[in-house]
Simulated assay, not measured.
Amino acid sequence: MKGRVLIIAGSDSGGGAGIQADIKAVTALGGYAATAITALTAQDTQGVRAVHPVPLDFLRLQIRMSLDDIGADCIKTGMLADAATIDTVCDALAGSGVRLVADPVMVAKGGAPLLAPEAVETLKRRLMPLATILTPNLPEAEVLSGMAIPDTDAMVHAAELLMTLGVPAVLLKGGHGEGPVLRDVLATEDGVEVFESPRIETRHTHGTGCTLASAIATGLAQGMGLRDAVLRARAYVAAAIRAAPGYGRGHGPLDHGVTLDPARIAALA
């Protein structure tokens, strides 16, 4: 086990996204996952029924105790819900010097809002300048950049625009796009690179954004360079989608354990 990742995000009772997906992804890639839960959700593959925020003092305590004792080699943020939560997280992380993968979660796969509209400016003003990399999907990037993103050229422009807000790297994910080829854009201070892969036609994509961001955070925590961490994370998510177990009546979960070999463990027993 190598690489400590502190995940600050919401809980998904269905297990496919949020904290649950984050822990599975970090573990599957050989890292150690610690958590600070921002909110509890009651949800399944068809949608979010209810959200119960965690008191801010308790959230702050979770972060402090994790960092003071076990420590972290990388931090990943997901669902932060509102401006007060963003402020609390940023205050708690200020001066930590730990790299941060910020996944700007705004809407659940089923369409439920997970970030208050008035919190967007706080996210841009406070969280993005602390991040090592921002990992928005297309709808999130359109909100943050204030522009439509209909094609790859627009993705490149939007990623570069987001970097002007203080974040040194952006991975703009193309999963919400159309066509047989999925394109993700990685923009850094060294330039822009477009990654292409075949689009996997499936409804079992719940938690892909959470999983990808946590996989990147694990790579960074393990000492990988940013590009290599992104490439491994993309490969892991694609494999987990292809191996999805088919659970649920809606957007089903991935197989986060695609890297594991239970038969090998049984042989050692």
Results as ranks from 00 to 15, higher is better:
D261M: 05
A217Q: 09
A239V: 06
G3V: 07
F58L: 15
P245A: 13
T77V: 06
T132N: 09
H206G: 10
D151M: 01
G166R: 07
G223W: 03
I200D: 10
G10V: 10
V185S: 04
G179W: 10
L254V: 05
A217K: 06
A158L: 04
Q46P: 04
A158P: 00
G252W: 09
R232N: 14
A92C: 11
V192E: 09
L165Y: 14
L56T: 01
Q222S: 03
R4T: 04
A159R: 06
I23R: 10
T218V: 04
H251Y: 14
L127H: 07
L115F: 01
A42C: 10
R125E: 15
P180C: 01
D82P: 11
R125V: 06
A221L: 08
V107S: 03
E189R: 15
A112D: 08
T41I: 06
S13I: 10
V89R: 04
A187D: 02
S197Y: 02
G219P: 03
K2L: 14
R4F: 05
V101Y: 07
G166V: 11
A235M: 11
D91W: 03
D153S: 13
E189Y: 00
A94I: 02
G252C: 03
I8W: 06
Q46N: 08
E142K: 06
T188C: 05
L93M: 09
I149K: 04
G18I: 11
G146A: 08
V48P: 00
P113A: 09
Y32V: 14
G174D: 02
A217F: 06
C90T: 14
A39N: 04
G246F: 04
A84L: 09
I241N: 14
D91Y: 01
L186M: 02
L138V: 13
L220A: 03
Q62V: 05
A244D: 11
V120I: 15
P253H: 02
A131N: 01
E121W: 00
M147L: 13
D151N: 14
G248Q: 04
L260K: 03
A269M: 12
V26A: 07
A33I: 09
A72L: 04
L220F: 05
G246K: 07
A25W: 02
K109D: 02
A21R: 12
H176E: 10
D153R: 13
A34M: 15
M147Q: 15
A119E: 08
A266L: 14
P253E: 05
G146F: 08
I19N: 02
L93N: 11
P117Y: 12
A235V: 11
F195W: 11
C210P: 00
G71A: 02
R99V: 13
R126W: 05
V194E: 09
R4G: 03
Q20P: 09
L165N: 13
P150S: 03
